[in-house]
């Protein structure tokens, strides 16, 4: 076995050290934000906090979570992600499957370019806004879900994953009398779980993080969480107005901001470990073949 050789063992040890260091570098920024969120505002503005909270307290979390708006926003974000993933994956898979069979699909390439073109060209904000209004989607969750339902990038990825699946599988199925729809659902989907998990992750993360469309299309009481957080974190330009001392103090509240950032990030972070089992162990193709 290759991993019993001496040189491989040395490589393995070095590899583990390297990857651990890299992982550390990646976790530290988040730990910093976390430490800020648990510290007192004073300690933070005195630059005393790096990776461990100073004057540990939960005030920021209490203040943020005590906000009624926040729960509504959380619910809307979850709804948006669920709806977005379900519709998004359905459309992506449905589009990718036929396009992965260019040989049987006359005009398939033209259709593919039809999609790819929209990756690059877009009319911008104003026409989209007018469109959403004309379709009466304003202030509905569909304004957030439908415009980006088909992610072309994801679709192309899916298409390529589908193409990597051995042709024999499909042919066997078609010869058995099954149609394309059955083949897609019975054969393709089960062995494409790693790829589908990838796309689910991309779509979910995209929907969770998106804030601008919420700001433009939704009334304040219907803002999803990232939109709400965005407005809570950003300081408006105060240079021209009469500011009060309370405002000046609030402006420097990095503690509260950090708590909000963390609360806004945590739910989506939890999605990954859940999907991870699909990446770590590949599907054993041989088993399906046999």
């Amino acid at each position: 076995m290759y991993y019993k050789t001496k040189s491989y063992r040395i490589f393995y040890a070095l590899n583990i050290i390297l990857l651990s260091l890299i992982s550390l570098a990646c976790i530290l920024p988040l730990i910093h934000v976390l430490a800020l969120s648990f510290s007192s505002g004073l300690a933070v503005s005195a630059n005393k906090v790096t990776f461990w909270p100073v004057d540990f307290n939960l005030d920021s979390y209490k203040r943020t979570l005590g906000d009624a708006d926040f729960l509504v926003a959380f619910y809307l974000s979850v709804a948006r992600v669920v709806l977005g993933v379900v519709i998004g994956i359905a459309v992506t898979v449905l589009t990718a499957y036929p396009l992965s069979k260019m040989d049987s699909l006359k005009g398939g390439r033209v259709i593919a370019w039809f999609f790819v073109f929209t990756m690059l060209f877009n009319g911008g904000l104003i026409p989209s806004y007018i469109l959403i209004q004309k379709l009466h989607l304003m202030n509905t969750i569909w304004a957030l879900v439908l415009p980006g339902a088909l992610g072309v990038y994801n679709m192309i990825l899916m298409l390529n994953f589908f193409r990597a699946i051995p042709k024999e599988l499909e042919e066997a199925s078609l010869i058995d009398g099954a149609g394309h729809m059955t083949t897609l659902i019975r054969i393709y989907l089960p062995i494409s779980m790693p790829s589908i998990a990838t796309i689910v992750l991309f779509v979910a993360v995209g929907h969770w993080n998106a804030w601008f469309d919420g700001l433009i299309y939704m009334q304040k009481e219907n803002w999803p969480m990232s939109t709400l957080l965005q407005t809570m974190i950003k300081a408006p330009d105060l240079s021209q107005r009469t500011v009060s001392d309370a405002e000046i103090v609030n402006l420097t509240e990095r503690t509260l901001k950090s708590a909000k950032i963390f609360i806004g990030t945590l739910p989506i972070l939890l999605v990954y470990p859940f999907l991870q089992r699909y990446f770590v162990k590949g599907i054993v193709l041989g088993a399906v073949k046999g």
């Binding site: 589009t95 036929p98 699909l105 009319g123 911008g124 439908l146 339902a149």
Partner: peptide
């Protein structure tokens, strides 16, 4: 059997047409 493939493409094409191609009129700006 292959005709089904075109039906499968339809939802995606409609979505893209409505939400991406229609607003491209704005490129006149």
């Amino acid at each position: 059997k292959n005709a089904v493939l075109y039906w499968m493409l339809l939802p995606g094409m409609i979505l893209v047409f409505v939400f991406h191609y229609l607003p491209m009129a704005g490129l006149v700006m």
